[in-house]
């Protein structure tokens, strides 16, 4: 649900990240994650996760954003750590979950400080070489925007169907919701397509 609200307006003047260009941030993210994986160190991984979390308030993003990321990630972290630990390798448990948490937190720093439209401009520029093979960079960027746009769309189709399902006193058989959810999504997609045409965005 909150996925589409990824961008978090900066709350203070420390919004260094908000001012950096999207390309630089993505590149830095790529380098950092590669380094993290290459280092594969039991101490470094959890330490970088902690550092990435600390960077949030330092960049004017608030600890809340970091906590939200960690909460979403928690089940996976727990499962992986437990599995490694049971396999008798607590060091691997610390390393892998540390790497994962650090990577997710760093990625969250980038998404929270970058508007989708900046991301689009970047992708449009990156996709420009594809024009030689007949692809339209603007379309590539639009497809990415629409993918992000469709997350709340799917969520609301699911919520509407679930509420109707419960309101009608149906229970059990959640598979009965598959068809209405798909129909709801197709209908919204139809309306969205029409709106795009009407607004001349295509």
């Amino acid at each position: 649900m909150t996925m589409a609200a990824l961008y978090v307006p900066a709350r203070s003047r420390r919004a260094v990240l908000h001012r950096l260009p999207a390309g630089a941030k993505l590149l830095a993210l790529l380098v950092a994650v590669c380094a993290l994986v290459a280092a594969a160190d039991t101490a470094v991984a959890p330490a970088s996760a902690a550092a990435a979390a600390l960077l949030h308030p330092l960049c004017g993003l608030g600890v809340r954003t970091a906590l939200r990321t960690l909460r979403a990630l928690a089940p996976f972290l727990a499962a992986i750590a437990l599995f490694q630990w049971l396999a008798g390798d607590w060091q691997a448990a610390a390393r892998v979950s540390g790497q994962l948490a650090a990577a997710a937190l760093l990625a969250a720093l980038v998404t929270a400080s970058t508007r989708v439209s900046e991301m689009l401009d970047l992708f449009e520029r990156l996709a420009r070489p594809l024009a030689r093979f007949g692809a339209n960079p603007r379309r590539v960027a639009l497809v990415l925007a629409l993918t992000i746009r469709c997350i709340p769309l799917v969520a609301s189709a699911w919520r509407a169907s679930r509420e109707a399902y419960i309101a009608r006193g149906l229970r059990g058989r959640p598979d009965a919701m598959v068809v209405p959810v798909i129909v709801g999504m197709l209908r919204s997609a139809d309306a969205l397509g029409e709106a795009l045409t009407a607004r001349g965005i295509d």
Partner: peptide, 19 residues
């Protein structure tokens, strides 16, 4: 709701001007 293309208010208004 069906007409909103972009995640935030200003971006949605702005996308109509892209071309």
């Amino acid at each position: 709701s069906a007409q909103i293309v972009m995640p935030t208010v200003a971006e949605d208004v702005a996308i109509g001007l892209r071309r």
